[in-house]
């Protein structure tokens, strides 16, 4: 027997032992309580934000809620799938059958590796190209000691072309070496439990060769795009702008031109002046020294007061000016030996 065949035979024996162990283990049904509580909490937060008309917070929380409810539903589907699988358990494959599966892998994939110490079987796909975007070949690495866990395999990009916005998204359906199995999930589960390794690797490989625009981590149209910091839309590299104040990346639609100095900035760096309502950048805005509200440079006086505060200060000064002549007259009369007029009773110090 060739050395290679001995390795395959040993691997087959170990894989069978794992399958036997997984089959013997009592299935523990875990309902997605944590996910459910997270959804409940988010609903409460959304209501709270709505009652205060914090619309941006409502949008952000609604997005989080949507993701949480999807995770919760996925977990429930998994529980349902486990229940379904336990009703119709696949026959335990023989060592010979698993050996046959391992041998057949070489007919389907150019590179196949069996690593006994690390308990892995891996295959390398052909370079993946979806809608003219190349993602390079992927290694699908099954850890047989992890059969029964989700997922027991990794999908590793060997020549990665990650999405611009997310370096661990190496494929529209792979994030952090984990494949989002979608329609292939149940077939993968069944293949694993039955020890049908060829089917497992074929299914994973076919998912990698398919693009589902409806639920990709990053869609292909946005693969090389950069997200706009304000609206989140993907922007092509040649259509990217940067805020002149903070440097954030922006799309053309989110650019705001400062009405005072004409720089282009993002929403965070622009504010409406409380006086003239012009949009001004952070460089052209200042707090009024009196009321502390934001105004543009044109609406503040030389001493940093808005129109209203300036009027109030003028009125106060005028009042002070009007009371001053009486005091001066009284002082002059006293010095001349005349009786000075008495101050109003309320002002007399006792």
């Amino acid at each position: 027997m060739l050395q290679n065949q001995k390795t395959l035979l040993r691997a087959a024996e170990r894989i069978r032992s794992t399958l036997q162990r997984v089959r013997a283990a009592t299935a523990v049904v875990e309902l997605p309580e944590a996910h459910w509580h997270e959804c409940e909490s988010l609903i409460q937060q959304i209501r709270w934000a709505e009652s205060r008309r914090w619309m941006h917070a409502v949008t952000v929380l609604s997005d989080r809620f949507e993701r949480s409810i999807v995770r919760c539903a996925e977990r429930l589907q998994e529980v349902s799938r486990q229940a379904s699988l336990s009703k119709r358990p696949a026959a335990l494959p023989t060592v010979r059958e698993i050996f046959g599966e391992l041998v057949a892998l070489s007919d389907e994939f150019e590179r196949v590796g069996v690593d006994l110490p690390n308990q892995t079987v891996s295959v390398t796909t052909e370079p993946i190209v979806l809608e003219e975007i190349g993602f390079g070949p992927f290694e699908i690495r099954l850890h047989w000691d992890r059969i029964g866990e989700r997922p027991p395999y990794d999908v590793v990009a060997l020549d990665p072309n990650p999405a611009r916005e997310s370096s661990d998204t190496t494929h529209p359906h792979v994030k952090g070496e984990r494949l989002c199995e979608g329609d292939g999930q149940m077939a993968i589960d069944r293949a694993l439990r039955a020890g049908r390794l060829l089917d497992l690797f074929q299914i994973v490989s076919r998912i990698l060769n398919t693009y589902n625009s409806g639920s990709a981590y990053v869609s292909l149209s946005d693969w090389d795009g950069i997200p706009c910091n304000d609206c989140g839309d993907q922007v092509r590299e040649d259509d990217v702008y940067a805020c002149d104040r903070c440097g954030d990346i922006l799309c053309r639609n989110c650019l705001i031109s400062c009405e005072r100095c004409d720089v282009l900035c993002c929403q965070s760096c622009a504010n409406y002046c409380r006086g003239c309502e012009a949009q001004a950048c952070t460089g052209c805005q200042q707090d009024c020294r009196g009321c502390q509200r934001l105004f543009c440079s044109r609406c503040l006086s030389e001493i940093g007061l808005c129109e209203k505060c300036t009027e109030e200060e003028d009125a106060e000064s005028l009042e002070n000016d009007e009371t001053l002549p009486d005091e001066t007259a009284a002082s002059a009369a006293t010095s001349a030996g005349e009786a000075a007029p008495l101050p109003p009773a309320a002002s007399v110090a006792i």
Partner: peptide, 30 residues
């Protein structure tokens, strides 16, 4: 389409005990 884990021509005659597997070339991930 595989018979006993091997690709076969469409006229291949099946035998008792054969193992036939059918896997779509396109499977949508999520």
């Amino acid at each position: 389409i595989r018979v006993n884990r091997q690709p076969v021509p469409e006229g291949h005659i099946l035998q008792e005990g054969d193992r036939v597997s059918v896997t779509p070339t396109k499977i949508e991930g999520a």
